[in-house]
Design a protein around this nucleic acid. Structure first.
Lengths: 156, 156
DNA sequence: AAGTCACGTGCAACTATGTTGCGTTAAATG
DNA sequence: CATTTAACGCAACATAGTTGCACGTGACTT
């Protein structure tokens, strides 16, 4: 399974025509394995430590992946960017759920956004994203079952 | 005109039941006068300097305004939060345009998001936002008419 | 297989937005 | 006017992300 994802990542990068490096392959593999959007921090934690990939390199790889369309960058309410492997978000008009408490972002595959939206004169639309804000299952549960002062910024 | 907005701001804050302070009135007046969402930086620049309102106070006022519903906070792609006076964004399902180059955010009053979107089990939706990403009129224009290396982070 | 060269990487220092603690000021109330 | 307490100003801090530069390495040529 893990091997497969690494291979898949390598193939995707090779197909893009750019250089195939360990950092790129490993980061993309991490994104492919994830079932939700990952922050830079998440990616770092999930990377095999023995590889010794630098913090900055992870930033640059994530940037490159989103730049060349292999990943999708999502700006969170919490000022943290999260990334999905492009597979999960291929459409030009898709939907996300964002938890307002822990920041978790998941793709909503069943929903889709209107593809045509009227914009002011001169504006050039590229992409339409439908964002549903609220509480994820974990946060909604701990919220109701326990305290009125929730531990903000939990990260599960 | 300016006087009117200040008065309107004062009335809105008074009606909220909280303390009416100069900082709150002035910041809300600035938001009411704006025709697009403003960042903290934008607000500071537009505030009458003679008032001597502190940086941190502006942050706290913006936070308070969005907390009590008098303003609406929008997380930008560029890690900058922008704020609209609530008037402009009253609906629970509304739409924004975000420029991917300069970060400008404007409300799209003509468009609206679907109010009902299917979410995973246990998730609790609060709000739905439709975000159109692309280039604003200014950026789209300078992009086509001039250089291939656009001055990123322009702020107009 | 060795050589070349540009692209990618590691490291350190830096930037910018936003936050916190704490003593002081000033709005609201009587 | 006196009292109370929320809001303010200041300084120091926190954190996500960026930049400059020297060095290493992937891909391509010979």
């Amino acid at each position: 399974m893990a091997k497969t994802m690494t291979d898949a990542a390598e193939a995707m990068i090779r197909e893009s025509g750019a250089r195939v490096t360990r950092a790129r392959v490993e980061v993309l593999a991490v994104l492919l394995k994830a079932e939700r959007a990952l922050s830079h921090h998440d990616v770092e934690r999930r990377l095999n430590r023995s590889l010794g990939v630098d913090r900055v390199t992870v930033y640059r790889v994530l940037d490159w992946l989103s730049g060349c369309g292999l990943a999708h960058k999502i700006a969170g309410e919490d000022r943290i960017s999260r990334y999905n492997a492009a597979e999960h978000a291929h459409s030009r008009a898709h939907a996300h759920f964002q938890c307002g408490r822990c920041g978790t972002v998941v793709c909503l595959d069943d929903a889709d956004a209107p593809t045509e939206v009227p914009v002011p004169t001169g504006f050039v639309p590229h992409e339409v994203v439908l964002t549903v804000k609220g509480l994820c299952a974990t946060c909604a549960h701990t919220r109701t079952s326990s305290s009125r002062h929730p531990p903000a910024r939990a990260r599960h």
